[in-house]
Computed example of a mutant assay.
Amino acid sequence: MTTARPPAPAPASVPPRVAAALRASWGRDTCDTADVADWSPRRPSRGQCGATALVLHDLLGGDLLLAEVWLPDGRLQGYHWWNRLPGGAEADLTRDQFGPGETVQPPRTVVRPPGPPRRCRPQYELLRRRVLDRLASAG
């Protein structure tokens, strides 16, 4: 039986209640469509990076970071999103989604375009709503 991996600790610059609200809000329905087949409750961060980075950006500001992810044979697996918060600390709440041999390359900063995301908009909107509801109910 495979057990869930413990989540990586959130950087000190991410309030613990925000990190907890994000992690508790992940599900198959908030997963990037490209990763749904690989998502499971044992690996809840799989496919959550784009929506998570956008919600964290909504809440804390900073920069969005984007990097290619390579497979062991050098093929492109996909892309990974995370945040650089005001003050310079990087916050990557979904880094533990990657399996052995999946290598995240150095990031580039991406300017967030105005308006809602073009890709995975329903997943982002659902995750955002869940997180804001959890934060509101926690006081």
Score class of each variant (00 low, 15 high):
Arg75Asn: 01
Asp96Arg: 05
Arg118Ala: 13
His80Leu: 01
Arg84Thr: 03
Phe98Lys: 00
Cys120Glu: 13
Arg95Ile: 05
Gly88Pro: 13
Pro100Tyr: 03
Val110Lys: 08
Gln105Val: 06
Arg95Gln: 08
Arg118Ile: 11
Gln105Arg: 06
Trp82Arg: 02
Gly87Asn: 10
Pro122Ile: 15
Gly99Ser: 10
Leu76Lys: 13
Ala91Pro: 06
Leu127Thr: 03
Leu126Val: 03
Glu102Lys: 06
Gly87Pro: 00
Arg128Thr: 08
Pro122Leu: 01
Gln123Leu: 14
Pro113Lys: 12
Pro100Cys: 06
Arg108Cys: 08
Gln77Ala: 14
Thr94Lys: 04
Arg128Lys: 05
Gly99Met: 15
Ala89Trp: 10
Arg112Lys: 12
Arg108Pro: 15
Pro114Gln: 14
Pro107Cys: 08
Val104Trp: 08
Glu90Asp: 08
Gly101Trp: 01
Gly101Met: 00
His80Ala: 03
Pro86Ile: 05
Arg75Lys: 11
Arg112Ile: 07
Pro86Val: 12
Leu85Tyr: 03
Thr103Asp: 07
Gly88Ala: 08
Arg112Cys: 13
Pro113Ile: 06
Phe98Arg: 07
Pro113Val: 11
Leu93Glu: 00
Glu90Asn: 11
Arg84Lys: 02
Gln105Trp: 09
Gln123Asn: 02
Thr103Gly: 05
Trp81Cys: 09
Val110Thr: 04
Leu93Ala: 11
Leu85Phe: 02
Gly99Thr: 04
Gln123Glu: 10
Gly115Ile: 02
Gly87Gln: 09
Tyr79Phe: 09
Gln105Thr: 12
Arg121Lys: 15
Pro117Tyr: 04
Thr103Asn: 13
Val110Phe: 08
Arg75Glu: 10
Arg95Tyr: 04
Leu93Pro: 03
Val104Pro: 10
Thr109Ser: 13
Arg108His: 15
Val110Ser: 15
Gly101Phe: 00
Trp82Met: 05
Leu85Asn: 12
Arg129Phe: 00
Pro106Ile: 00
